[in-house]
């Protein structure tokens, strides 16, 4: 059963002073429902462009992107940005940062707030709701940004290098947080990453991209049982998967 279907996607960047740049040429991809798929590849291979096309943020010349058989533009899609601080609205209190995107048009303000607090407490998310984002720590801000995307139970969740700005031990903690949120309400996730360890850790499937134009170099199923924990990083199973993906990545990028 597939959730995201991309068929014959063609996307060209035409700049005024730059040569035509073909990012996708007849690109097709299918992703199974309720799985976490990580996309890795060299810089500029089209990972972020893929997310932008799927989210409907940029136009493309040809092709079809469907989520659960419906055009991707109508779908309920979440997007986690790398720059979480900038993705929040500092003029709104934390609770209103979520309430303003909550997909319950008929609910009153109070109902929305109660729903958010209830939703969060079910998931052990503790945030100072009446504070403003800039009064919170970086971790709280990131949690807020994540909660905002998960609360509407999106059919598809796109993440663009969400933890690139964090240090290593924080990243380990966030991987667990994401897995917990995801396990509670499984959805299709596309995670763009430049960190192969992170990709293997989180994903059910890792797709290695080749570039110019973007193509699928290889796909790897990661069958490490969930829930996964940092201790798994030392296991033989993880090593095997990591090695295979890394090999593929090096072949695809040919930097050496």
């Amino acid at each position: 059963m597939s959730s995201l279907t991309i068929t014959n996607l063609t996307k060209t960047y035409v700049g005024a002073n730059t040569p035509r740049h073909v990012v996708f040429d007849n690109f097709s991809l299918e992703i199974k429902r309720d799985t976490i798929v990580a996309v890795v590849g060299a810089n500029g291979c089209g990972k972020t462009t893929l997310l932008n096309c799927v989210a409907g943020l940029i136009q493309y010349e040809h092709g079809n992107i469907e989520i659960d058989g419906r055009n991707s533009c109508d779908a309920n899609t979440g997007f986690v940005f790398q720059n979480y601080r900038e993705s929040l609205l500092p003029w709104l209190k934390n609770i209103n940062n979520i309430a303003c995107v909550l997909d319950q048009p008929t609910a009153s303000k109070l109902e929305k707030c109660n729903y958010i607090k209830h939703w969060a407490s079910e998931r052990d998310i503790v945030l100072p709701w009446e504070s403003y984002p800039y009064q919170c720590s970086g971790g709280q801000q990131q949690l807020l940004a994540l909660a905002r995307e998960f609360i509407n139970q999106p059919k598809l969740l796109l993440m663009d290098e969400p933890f690139a700005a964090l240090d290593y031990e924080k990243r380990l903690a966030w991987r667990q947080q994401i897995e917990t949120l995801w396990a509670r309400h499984p959805t299709t996730v596309i995670l763009v990453s430049h960190d192969i360890e992170e990709a293997v850790y989180l994903a059910d499937e890792v797709i290695v991209f080749g570039s110019q134009p973007a193509r699928i170099f290889s796909r790897h199923t990661i069958d490490i049982p969930r829930p996964r924990a940092p201790a798994m990083l030392q296991g033989e199973l993880f090593f095997q998967h990591h090695r295979v993906v890394l090999q593929s990545f090096l072949q695809a990028t040919s930097i050496i």
């Binding site: 409907g56 997007f79 900038e86 995107v101």
Partner: peptide, 12 residues
């Protein structure tokens, strides 16, 4: 206006 926040308006 930050590009990210413009995108959010579009996404949501």
């Amino acid at each position: 206006i930050s590009h990210t926040r413009r995108l959010i308006a579009k996404l949501k």
